[in-house]
Each structure stands twice: as structure tokens, then as C-alpha cells.
């Protein structure tokens, strides 16, 4: 079912091919700002405990994951 649905959606978006977009700039963002920088200052942030508070598994202050190598 998923295969058919994705096929249908792709067929639906094919419609854009009708339009001539030669020389048209893409709009990645509607906001006229780019590369917003900030000073590299120390600010209050999470404690280790807070950062790990939602971790599915943790050990000694680290995120724990299943083994990577067999």
C-alpha cells in the first residue's frame, strides 16, 4: 500500500515539470537573513543530569547505546 501511495504522491508532484523555471532563483527561506552569528560567550545551560534526563539508557554520566561491533 505504501508503495502505491508514494507512487501516487510522486506522480502528483510531477506537475511542477510543466512550469518553466529557467533563471528563477530558489527560495530556501522567506526571511531575508542568513548566517546569523552570535558571540561565543558562556551562558547558563543544562547540567549533565538535565541533559541525560530523557535518555533511554545511561551509565556513569554517558548516553549508553547497544554494541556497535559484533
Amino acid at each position: 500500500m505504501l508503495t502505491k501511495q508514494l507512487g501516487d504522491i510522486l506522480q502528483f508532484v510531477e506537475k511542477l515539470g510543466e512550469l518553466n523555471t529557467d533563471g528563477v532563483e530558489p527560495t530556501y527561506s522567506v526571511v531575508p537573513v542568513s548566517n546569523v552569528m552570535r558571540e561565543d560567550e558562556e551562558k547558563p545551560s543544562f547540567t549533565q543530569e538535565q541533559a541525560l534526563s530523557n535518555a533511554p539508557e545511561k551509565d556513569m554520566g554517558f548516553f549508553k547505546i547497544p554494541k556497535i561491533m559484533e
Binding site: 508514494l6 510522486l10 511542477l16 515539470g17 512550469l19 523555471t21 528563477v24 530558489p26 527560495t27
Partner: peptide, 25 residues
Amino acid sequence: MLGTYVLSAGYYDAYYLKAQKVRTL
């Protein structure tokens, strides 16, 4: 899945870039 597909190499220009250009229009 759809998003990964339209961003994938080979389809990026046809789908994603094209859509961003039509967005301009």
C-alpha cells in the same frame, strides 16, 4: 521516505530545487 527521496542525489534538482524555484514564483 518521500522527503529522503526528493533530497537524494539524482533527484534533488528535479524535485527539491524545482520546488524551491516554483516557491519563488
